[in-house]
Design a protein around this nucleic acid. Structure first.
Length: 111
DNA sequence: ATCGTGACTGGGA
DNA sequence: CTCCCAGCCACGA
Protein backbone atom coordinates (compact mmCIF):
# COMPACT_ATOMS: atom_id res chain seq x y z
CA UNK A 1 0.00 0.00 0.00
CA UNK A 2 1.48 3.34 -1.01
CA UNK A 3 1.68 6.33 1.34
CA UNK A 4 -1.01 8.02 -0.69
CA UNK A 5 -3.34 5.05 -0.34
CA UNK A 6 -2.74 4.91 3.42
CA UNK A 7 -3.68 8.56 3.73
CA UNK A 8 -6.92 8.18 1.82
CA UNK A 9 -7.68 5.02 3.79
CA UNK A 10 -7.44 6.94 7.06
CA UNK A 11 -9.49 9.88 5.83
CA UNK A 12 -12.19 7.42 4.86
CA UNK A 13 -12.43 6.38 8.52
CA UNK A 14 -13.38 9.84 9.74
CA UNK A 15 -17.02 9.61 10.85
CA UNK A 16 -19.62 12.04 9.59
CA UNK A 17 -19.82 15.00 11.92
CA UNK A 18 -16.18 14.71 12.98
CA UNK A 19 -12.93 16.24 11.78
CA UNK A 20 -9.23 15.26 11.92
CA UNK A 21 -6.26 17.56 11.47
CA UNK A 22 -3.72 16.99 8.68
CA UNK A 23 -1.21 15.99 11.34
CA UNK A 24 -3.59 13.49 12.93
CA UNK A 25 -4.24 11.81 9.61
CA UNK A 26 -0.52 11.64 8.87
CA UNK A 27 0.17 10.02 12.25
CA UNK A 28 -2.59 7.43 11.91
CA UNK A 29 -1.35 6.64 8.41
CA UNK A 30 2.06 5.87 9.91
CA UNK A 31 3.57 8.97 8.30
CA UNK A 32 4.46 11.31 11.18
CA UNK A 33 5.69 14.74 10.18
CA UNK A 34 4.17 14.51 6.72
CA UNK A 35 1.00 16.56 7.13
CA UNK A 36 1.78 18.29 3.84
CA UNK A 37 1.52 14.96 2.09
CA UNK A 38 -2.01 14.68 3.40
CA UNK A 39 -3.07 17.98 1.87
CA UNK A 40 -1.51 17.03 -1.44
CA UNK A 41 -3.15 13.61 -1.47
CA UNK A 42 -6.57 15.11 -0.83
CA UNK A 43 -6.12 17.81 -3.44
CA UNK A 44 -5.26 15.18 -6.05
CA UNK A 45 -7.82 12.55 -5.07
CA UNK A 46 -10.41 12.08 -7.83
CA UNK A 47 -13.91 13.18 -6.81
CA UNK A 48 -15.10 9.79 -8.01
CA UNK A 49 -13.42 8.21 -5.00
CA UNK A 50 -15.89 10.03 -2.76
CA UNK A 51 -13.27 10.74 -0.09
CA UNK A 52 -14.58 12.84 2.85
CA UNK A 53 -11.79 15.39 2.22
CA UNK A 54 -13.82 18.16 3.86
CA UNK A 55 -13.41 16.50 7.27
CA UNK A 56 -9.70 17.41 7.35
CA UNK A 57 -8.71 20.81 8.72
CA UNK A 58 -5.51 22.32 10.12
CA UNK A 59 -4.26 22.21 13.70
CA UNK A 60 -5.61 25.68 14.32
CA UNK A 61 -9.13 24.44 13.67
CA UNK A 62 -9.33 26.45 10.46
CA UNK A 63 -10.06 25.68 6.83
CA UNK A 64 -6.72 25.45 5.06
CA UNK A 65 -8.02 25.98 1.55
CA UNK A 66 -7.45 29.63 0.56
CA UNK A 67 -10.50 31.86 0.98
CA UNK A 68 -12.37 33.20 -2.01
CA UNK A 69 -12.11 29.83 -3.74
CA UNK A 70 -14.73 27.32 -4.77
CA UNK A 71 -13.19 24.66 -2.54
CA UNK A 72 -13.25 26.88 0.53
CA UNK A 73 -16.94 27.59 0.22
CA UNK A 74 -17.71 23.97 -0.60
CA UNK A 75 -15.89 22.67 2.47
CA UNK A 76 -17.83 24.97 4.77
CA UNK A 77 -21.09 23.91 3.19
CA UNK A 78 -20.34 20.18 3.50
CA UNK A 79 -19.30 20.55 7.14
CA UNK A 80 -22.44 22.51 8.02
CA UNK A 81 -24.57 19.83 6.39
CA UNK A 82 -23.03 17.39 8.88
CA UNK A 83 -23.96 19.62 11.75
CA UNK A 84 -20.50 21.04 12.35
CA UNK A 85 -20.60 24.62 13.56
CA UNK A 86 -18.11 26.85 11.79
CA UNK A 87 -17.63 30.59 12.16
CA UNK A 88 -15.50 32.64 9.81
CA UNK A 89 -13.71 29.49 8.64
CA UNK A 90 -12.98 28.40 12.21
CA UNK A 91 -14.11 25.23 13.93
CA UNK A 92 -13.94 24.33 17.61
CA UNK A 93 -11.59 21.34 17.35
CA UNK A 94 -12.32 20.15 20.87
CA UNK A 95 -15.96 19.59 19.89
CA UNK A 96 -15.41 17.54 16.75
CA UNK A 97 -11.88 16.14 16.58
CA UNK A 98 -12.52 12.99 18.57
CA UNK A 99 -15.25 10.69 19.86
CA UNK A 100 -14.90 7.49 21.93
CA UNK A 101 -16.02 5.28 19.05
CA UNK A 102 -13.27 6.60 16.81
CA UNK A 103 -10.72 4.85 18.99
CA UNK A 104 -12.20 1.52 17.86
CA UNK A 105 -11.86 2.45 14.20
CA UNK A 106 -8.23 3.35 14.71
CA UNK A 107 -7.52 -0.08 16.17
CA UNK A 108 -8.55 -1.68 12.89
CA UNK A 109 -6.08 0.19 10.70
CA UNK A 110 -4.15 -2.63 8.93
CA UNK A 111 -0.75 -0.90 9.01
C1' DA B 1 22.60 18.50 -6.18
C1' DT B 2 19.85 23.12 -5.58
C1' DC B 3 15.58 25.80 -5.54
C1' DG B 4 10.85 26.85 -5.19
C1' DT B 5 6.29 25.42 -3.79
C1' DG B 6 2.41 23.98 -0.76
C1' DA B 7 -5.21 22.52 1.56
C1' DC B 8 1.10 22.05 7.46
C1' DT B 9 2.77 23.09 12.38
C1' DG B 10 4.51 25.01 16.67
C1' DG B 11 6.18 28.95 18.73
C1' DG B 12 7.09 33.76 19.28
C1' DA B 13 5.89 38.86 18.64
C1' DC C 1 -6.62 36.96 18.42
C1' DT C 2 -3.62 37.79 14.20
C1' DC C 3 0.74 37.76 11.71
C1' DC C 4 5.24 36.02 10.78
C1' DC C 5 8.58 32.53 10.38
C1' DA C 6 11.78 28.75 10.72
C1' DG C 7 11.40 23.94 10.32
C1' DC C 8 9.51 20.22 7.78
C1' DC C 9 8.67 16.83 3.89
C1' DA C 10 7.82 15.23 -0.86
C1' DC C 11 8.22 16.67 -5.71
C1' DG C 12 9.03 18.62 -9.87
C1' DA C 13 11.75 21.88 -12.71
Amino acid sequence: MTSNEKILFVVNLIPEGNVFTYGKVADLAGLPGRSRMVSKALKQAPRSMLIPWHRVINSQGKISIPKDTKGYREQIELLRIEGIEINNGRIKLADYEWRPDIATLVMDIPF
